[in-house]
């Protein structure tokens, strides 16, 4: 595994800090230029997590909050994909954490006052760790879209929030996954802060019929890319690239 420094983050591919269409960013965006610096050992290292911290149902949002043999309401889905880095290499050992609204678009959170009801059998959180080939998978319920106070009539497309730890703290990333074909994607102020259409498309999971379980759950494929590391001359010789 490489321990080199990271490629500089492409800030033209990432959302800016200040995005006026997302009003909360106005007073929460730094105004000074960021101080750019090659990562030191403090950012090339990062916490590691291993499989034995995971419970059996951590990656199963269908069952991990269900009570008394009941099941949550909504479309059953499987989300799977790979975590790669910018060198297109799989990243193993990544802790992925996810959270989402229920099928009606309501979060189990005291700050969410949307009219859609809570589902007593759905908590909305899960986690897993990527395998040696960078792959991960979890089972859930397709989240509903929901309105939010920004403009008078802004709606979030169906989405799942993701948090990821790479092998270095500089790779830390929080993002969101959207669903292929959702018309709300192209009307969402939070999506539209991503400056390139290709960047938006990176966050849209595609239906994967081959992974779909007949009569059970529709599968979506969602690959995630973390920052890549420079390799040293020494590693190049070792790996023959």
């Amino acid at each position: 595994m490489s321990d080199g420094s990271f490629f500089q983050r492409d800030r033209d591919w990432q959302p800016a800090a200040l995005t006026p269409q997302y009003k909360t960013s106005l007073k929460r965006s730094p105004t000074h230029a960021l101080l750019s610096m090659d990562s030191s050992i403090s950012e090339r290292t990062g916490p590691t997590f291993n499989q034995n911290m995971l419970g059996e149902l951590d990656n199963d949002l269908v069952l991990n909050y269900a009570k008394d043999g009941e099941l949550p309401v909504g479309e059953r889905i499987i989300v799977q994909g790979r975590v790669l880095d910018e060198n297109a290499r799989p990243v193993p050992g990544v802790l992925l954490e996810f959270w989402q609204a229920n099928a009606g678009g309501r979060y189990r959170h005291k700050k969410d006052g949307y009219l859609a009801p809570l589902d007593p059998n759905f908590g909305g959180c899960g986690r897993t760790i990527s395998a040696a080939d960078g792959s991960y998978a979890f089972r859930s319920i397709k989240p509903g879209p929901y309105p939010w106070p920004n403009g008078v009539n802004d709606w979030r497309p169906s989405h799942i929030h993701f948090s990821l730890f790479g092998s270095g703290f500089a790779q830390r990333l929080i993002t969101q996954m959207y669903f292929e074909g959702d018309p709300l994607i192209w009307k969402c102020p939070i999506v539209s802060m991503i400056p390139n259409k290709g960047g938006i498309e990176q966050l849209i999971a595609r239906i994967d019929m081959n992974a779909t379980m007949p009569m059970d759950a529709i599968a979506y494929r969602f690959d995630i890319v973390l920052r890549g590391r420079r390799s040293t001359m020494f590693e190049n010789r070792l790996e023959g690239n």
Binding site: A88, E97, H161
Partner: peptide
């Protein structure tokens, strides 16, 4: 090379996950 996945806000419900 691939591009790093774009970041999105953690939002108000980050605690859930």
């Amino acid at each position: 090379y691939l591009k790093e996945s774009p970041s999105q806000t953690a939002g108000p419900y980050v605690h859930i996950g």
